[in-house]
Design a protein around this nucleic acid. Structure first.
Lengths: 140, 140
DNA sequence: TTGCGTGCAAAGGTTTTGCATGGCA
DNA sequence: TGCCATGCAAAACCTTTGCACGCAA
């Protein structure tokens, strides 16, 4: 991270790292920091997230399920480039999937359809097991 | 479509149908209607889109490329369930792809990972041919 | 000391809502 | 006639920006 190493920035990054397994909105981040007794201004949070995104340390998603952008910390040494994400449209659960089939699809699309898929940014929407079952029940 | 058949609703649906091959924001819709000499209030447009979405005639997307939601008319008789979408993060182009590989991936995910992918809602992000080439050039 | 980072408040854009009026059935 | 639909304006959101002050290096 370039620039100054301030208390606020430390706390934001630390909180993002602790929750690197999920997608957080700016608001969730602010509230979680508050719970830890740390108050950080909204503008600072947005500016820091923007900076981290540009540096590649954080990834930004627009998830239809939420009405605000989501952010996720990307550990450079982790395998986040390998796996991809499923997001349940119903309960909002985010599922990380390490599955060769998706990589193969990416390769196919790149070779045959001349489009380079961004595994990290792409999110497959649908219904998770629980919600699909609940949906079946409601329909009778 | 349930409810009354008003002039505004007719025009909105008509415009959506004419542009069913692309993703339109509420604003694009309003502007296009204005160009046709039809003025429809913003609230009406949003309310109608919301209604159409709930009825399944229109699909709503949150595309990271735009800063507002996009809507697309779904022709019940068309094959929109069959194909899926690629969206270039760079130029914003939306590509429709009829490709069995994706259907196979969906099947695999449903069977092996207990997650029912919504082909229609899912958008794969990445770089189109042109933008990928341009990106290569810039890097030398 | 320099200049980036911060916080507040205000502005920006998109979407929603309240309310009186309009218009379909 | 009854009730949904419309339009305006205002509100509610999320996010960005201007500006003065604070603080890391």
């Amino acid at each position: 991270m370039t620039g100054y190493n301030t208390r606020q920035r430390q706390m934001i990054i630390s909180c993002l790292k602790e929750n690197s397994d999920r997608h957080m909105t700016a608001d969730m981040l602010i509230k979680r920091l508050l719970q830890s007794g740390v108050s950080v201004g909204r503008a600072t949070v947005y500016r820091t997230l923007d900076k981290l995104c540009r540096e590649g340390a954080v990834r930004r998603y627009e998830l239809s399920v939420e009405n605000s952008a989501c952010y996720q910390y990307i550990d450079g040494s982790a395998d986040c480039g390998e796996h991809f994400h499923l997001k349940c449209e119903c309960c909002g659960e985010l599922i990380h999937l390490d599955c060769g089939h998706f990589s193969k699809l990416s390769e196919h699309i790149e070779k045959e359809h001349a489009f380079k898929v961004d595994n990290a940014k792409t999110v497959l929407y649908g219904l998770c097991e629980n919600c699909a079952a609940a949906s079946m029940k409601n329909r009778g």
